[in-house]
Amino acid sequence: MQTEQLNGVVSKPAYSSVELNPKSRFHLFIAEQNVTAEMQSIYDECSSDKKIAVYNDASDTQLIESLALFPLAGTLYLAGTEPFIWRVASHARQAGMCPEQIRMMTPVSRERHLFCCHCYTVTEGVTYSPYVCDGCGLSLEVTDHFARLHSAYFGYQVNAEDSADMPAKREVS
């Protein structure tokens, strides 16, 4: 199975500071729980048609509804945890938005969603590796291979080759 070389894999998202898109006619700001300082400053800078929304525990239905009427010439700004950002982005792409219309701020926490390749369960709130899968209970190696569609990182049983070979816990960044 893939091991340490997964560090530095190109599917791991990289984030840089977000700026207002001056060309856009409409700006939608979506924050997961709190409007971050970064988002607030971009929002304040924006003088054209804009809307800000905070979703505490937003359901997919709510998100899809708020994206459905988004205009063609708009920009979407996202703040929150990485899984939230990519979940909204995935709905936005489904609604027809182009990648360059979606601007993501650096995630507010290191928490990851972890996709178990054995049972396909996604375990939330993962900060270290190995991590026990909520679905099948296996200890999973948390890799940096990220799927935008699942908003999650790839995980596989860490000690499948030798059950006694359990690596020390390490934090993931």
Binding site: L6, V9, H145, A147, H150, F154
Partner: peptide, 20 residues
Amino acid sequence: DWSLAFDAGMSFREWHGPVP
């Protein structure tokens, strides 16, 4: 050793992400 269910929808570079 690769999963279609996980890699579905990925770009060429993304799905080759783990290749060293």
